[in-house]
Amino acid sequence: MSMYFDSWSGFLAMEGHGLYVWSAYAIALAVIAYNLIAPLMAKRRVIVQVRRQVRLVQRKVIVNEVTTGSGDDTENRTERQEEGLESVKRSAQ
């Protein structure tokens, strides 16, 4: 079994086509890396956004209860919180 190239420098140069070949490999590798990393970053952004929305909804429910001075029982408050969380989940989808 013989090698097509005589040395490593010959392999890297590829008879004058090395710049084109290796840049094509580099671009392909960059595209593959982007396709692997981009969805993970997008998922992280969505999770952060949903958590932020949940905190805002919870704060709004607490602020509304304090400002209105409502004496609602715990069940009604829990139902409103669950409704708020469900609406945040629907908007995130």
Results as ranks from 00 to 15, higher is better:
T78G: 13
Q53P: 06
R51Y: 14
W8L: 09
M3C: 09
Q53V: 06
G10W: 03
R59T: 12
A42N: 05
R51K: 05
A24V: 00
R51W: 05
S2D: 11
V54N: 13
V48W: 10
E79Y: 12
K43E: 15
V48H: 08
G69C: 03
A30P: 05
M3R: 04
N64I: 13
F5Y: 14
Q81M: 05
Y4A: 11
A26R: 07
R90L: 01
S7C: 06
L40R: 14
V31W: 01
I32A: 15
R45C: 01
N76K: 07
A28Y: 11
V61D: 00
Y34R: 04
L36H: 13
K89H: 00
A38Q: 05
R90H: 06
T74R: 09
V66H: 10
M14T: 02
E65I: 00
V46A: 07
Y20C: 03
L36E: 03
V50M: 09
R52K: 07
R44C: 12
V31C: 07
L19C: 15
N35E: 11
E83K: 07
S70T: 09
G18Q: 08
T78C: 03
M1Q: 12
I32N: 10
R77F: 12
R80Y: 08
S91W: 15
Q49K: 00
S9G: 14
I32G: 03
D6R: 13
V21M: 01
G69Y: 15
M1Y: 10
V46Q: 05
S9A: 07
V61Q: 01
E15T: 10
K43R: 15
L40A: 10
Y25C: 15
V46P: 02
E82Q: 15
V50C: 00
T67H: 15
A13F: 10
G69M: 11
M14W: 06
T68L: 07
V61I: 04
I47V: 08
K89M: 14
R59Q: 12
I27M: 00
V63D: 12
W8C: 08
M1R: 13
K60V: 10
G69H: 05
L36G: 08
N64K: 03
A33W: 12
Y34C: 11
